[in-house]
Design a protein around this nucleic acid. Structure first.
Lengths: 211, 211
DNA sequence: GTCTATATATAGATAGAC
DNA sequence: GTCTATCTATATATAGAC
């Protein structure tokens, strides 16, 4: 496999499932380290070691740490757009939609857990964070407005705005809340967090379990 | 800066309100810097400069950064104990009580905003964080149970547990949520955050405005 | 593409003069 | 108590060999 290009074409005819490129491996281990230890507390040396390469090689793929953070955030943007595109027309599918967002936030929790450090390391992402959040909140607003119109949610417009903000905060930061005990987070914690978010909506749900 | 403060004696008989000791000044500017920039992104050099002293002097008062963080957290513990002691017997004073906690969290927001970095810098505070949180949550539980008993709050016991968790998360992290836009937080934001927390309880309040 | 080797900057901590 | 001067460790980035 003589790949001489920096960007390898992902459209291969046969499904050669393994052999992830070094670049992809770097991004994967970076995200994992950023998520568990925080963006500002992970060194390039650690990333290189976790990826099984030397620091010089890491510098070849990502000249500086900010490049790495920007690439990571670009992945988040792309996945967020994908989730946004799966917005359900039926308000009954609200739960699955919420869960999709929740899982995404979980996989990129470093963005929320350490958002300030992120924009300090990579200032270029700051406007992108703002844009992404504004668009996402707009989208959420539309989804829940539809749920109100469909009679599944009973809430005043202003209260809905505050509810969405609270849902956003809990979705983004329940991990930090659980982490401070010192233990690692597991998938079981993920369900706990989702239940917490769901609970915010319970008082306003017209039919929680439509059977 | 022709200020010749060779040595000031802090033990004056009259209540000379000013002339804070160097140690107190260090703690004050540290807290301010930790709050605005994050525990892990503030250097000892910055702290010394902000306190108007040299780094060597800072080392005299706090031999290592962890000493400083531990002292800051001890201040938080002391103030938390003070707030806890003002727990109201009357459930009608719930709002003022919540506000006192909210203000405390605001003044020590670095503890929540950067809790992971805190325990990495100063591992000795980890069990103390855990203890403090457990005690505080217990206290909150007692207060709200009393409110339920007094008929001011209508909610099931399990739901109350989740509600308290959500109130804790929003109280602790609404700042991070607002900060990611890039601007500094102001006191006006504080009211926004408090309104968000209050909104969590609204669906369960029996009498929101008792006239 | 990956490596070795090195450079630069900064953070944190130390020793000792005053 | 406060300072100057220095030391060590580490993080990030560069240059060039293979």
């Amino acid at each position: 496999m003589a790949r001489s290009r920096g960007h390898q074409s992902p459209d291969e005819e046969v499904a050669a499932p393994e052999a992830p490129s070094t670049r992809e491996r770097i991004l994967a281990v970076s995200l994992a380290l950023f998520n568990t230890r925080g963006l500002g507390r992970v060194t390039t040396a650690e990333i290189a070691a976790a990826a099984g390469i030397r620091e010089g090689n890491l510098q070849y793929h990502f000249p500086r740490k900010s490049s790495l953070v920007e690439a990571m955030f670009a992945g988040f943007e792309a996945e967020a757009a994908a989730v946004a595109g799966r917005m359900p027309a039926d308000p009954g599918a609200l739960l699955a939609y919420q869960r999709a967002w929740f899982d995404l936030i979980w996989r990129y929790r470093c963005v929320y857990r350490d958002g300030i450090a992120m924009v300090e390391i990579a200032p270029a992402v700051r406007p992108r964070v703002h844009t992404l959040r504004a668009r996402t909140q707009e989208l959420a607003r539309a989804v829940f407005d539809a749920a109100v119109a469909a009679g599944r949610l009973r809430i005043e417009p202003e209260a809905l705005g505050r509810l969405i903000d609270n849902a956003w905060i809990v979705s983004s930061h329940w991990m930090s809340h659980r982490l401070q005990g010192g233990t690692e987070l597991t998938e079981a914690d993920l369900d706990w967090g989702f239940a917490q978010v769901r609970d915010l909506f319970v008082p306003y749900l017209v039919a929680l379990q439509p059977e």
